[in-house]
Design a protein around this nucleic acid. Sequence first.
DNA 1: CTGTTAGCGCGTTCAA
DNA 2: TTGAACGCGCTAACAG
Lengths: 329, 329
Amino acid sequence: MVSIKEVARHAGVAISTVSKVINGYPGVSIETKNKVQQAIKELNYIPNSIAAALSSKQYGRVALILNPKRQTQAADQICMQYLLGALDMAKELKLDVVTIFASMIAGMTTEEVAIYLRSLSISGVVIYSLSKEDKILQRLIQQRQFACVVVDAPIVNERTTSVSINHEQAQYDVAKKTIMDDNCKRVLYIAGRKDGYVTEQRLNGMKRLVEDLQLSMLVRQGNFSELAARNIALKYARNKDVVVCASDLMAIGAMNALIDMDIFRPVCGFDGITLMGYVGKQMNTIRQDFYGISSRAIQEINSLLNGTEGQEVIMPYDIVKMYYKDIIC
Amino acid sequence: MVSIKEVARHAGVAISTVSKVINGYPGVSIETKNKVQQAIKELNYIPNSIAAALSSKQYGRVALILNPKRQTQAADQICMQYLLGALDMAKELKLDVVTIFASMIAGMTTEEVAIYLRSLSISGVVIYSLSKEDKILQRLIQQRQFACVVVDAPIVNERTTSVSINHEQAQYDVAKKTIMDDNCKRVLYIAGRKDGYVTEQRLNGMKRLVEDLQLSMLVRQGNFSELAARNIALKYARNKDVVVCASDLMAIGAMNALIDMDIFRPVCGFDGITLMGYVGKQMNTIRQDFYGISSRAIQEINSLLNGTEGQEVIMPYDIVKMYYKDIIC
DNA sequence: CTGTTAGCGCGTTCAA
DNA sequence: TTGAACGCGCTAACAG
């Protein structure tokens, strides 16, 4: 492994000079600079990021904490988009990124998680789909020991930025569109998990809509589970005019239930996963740009790492109907 | 940040003693050990892995090179399983893992990729679904500069291990089962991409089957594209008795084409992705344990990093039919 | 069994 | 504008 020392010797200059050239610092004459760059090329020198991190004491690594539901692998698409967005942006920003799945820190206390992250030299964390009940990560955020970006949870403090779409409005919009199309009055709303922040926000959107449009609404927790949504639909859909679901997967479950019951009700979902294109029924849904959201999350963590204060970031969304022919390629 | 020095002082011992305790080396009396561990607890000391890596010159980081098809996000499930398996095992083995998507190194030369990896202090690489045409990564493997594990490509040398199922046999098995059930004679085989190793192996399996069962076979390249498979089926399926596809996604495309043509032909796929459960038709397919395969890949990279020679590892598989009721949860 | 010492490769003063 | 020297936190000989 060729080190900075060898480069220095080869170029006939001091180590610190090479360092300055590498890091683009001023105070090096143009010719010395050329000599050094020449030597770097010739020796095929690769700066050792480990040593650099140690020396400069900037271990600015960021951890991505993802929580893929192992059961519902159909939704893995969301995780992948998050990852792609994050990694692309991280490369651009030259941030070192570590991917951590929730399962890997399950059962640890906040302290243990902190120690684990520190042992990985991590100073910033992006948390995707945090649960309200996840006191461990909540405390981690409160402690302000790490810079945090929380996707889809409205937590902000000096060291914490939140990034998400406006779930309240999005749920309002997609449900309104679906309901207006068929002039529905009685809605069955299949909500997410009680412990989810987005669940609450989306429910609020529905409440506002019900108020605005003078509808009646029955709310049941579907826990983002396709099966639960199916069962809820089987039980309650018959007396309702429309089924609004807080996720695509639940919308699919509900729709399949309706088909089994041999009745028709408009159904709408939330997320915009490709799977929606495969189930043979077009439903309105909210399409989120998970890639863009995650990409933005990394930018935000970078800002935090550079000392910016936490803030709230609202991303855009679309209302769409997903067709098989749009999906297939 | 509390360092080893402070722990040593606090415990009234030498730094090296603390180091030994931390790393579980012998040659420390039980009481000194206790004193040290006490001090570690009290000071809430976290070993700095960066410094440890630098000092021990073991920058044993491993890169996961994934190639998610951005278009066909329905197959992201496979990537996620690969990731989950790899990260879980990496944590167990205390390996530091970096996730790299093919898009991040697209356009680089082999040298540039090598430099990039080195700059990340990477010494081992796991490559998923390598293409035959990917001369850049091929050269990286040939150069033996990094320990490599290649998933689904039959490349082995001193520093390269291959991990995969027996694609030839798997394709043979699943097609045979499908064909025997309906006593088919004329098969349409929709193969993968010409540049894929598995494509060739699976095709070989089909050739052997055709030979053994005295069938006729028409082969077309579907390039793992659902749309291409659809078009091929539309064009050729009518005169055939069965459609065998080299991937689930293609099987879905073909099946939908058959439905549009309003004819029935048995179809079988390959992979075992959940999506198969959603399309309203049961098809035979090969279920691979992507999680297990990836997990094994990490074990193998670990062995290579410890000086073992490369080898070929064959993983098991199942033949299954995927039902919606098995998928939904 | 314990402590001393010499680096690992690099960033960063501070003199020259 | 340059370079020698120190230290980051730790490991690994080696000496005691």
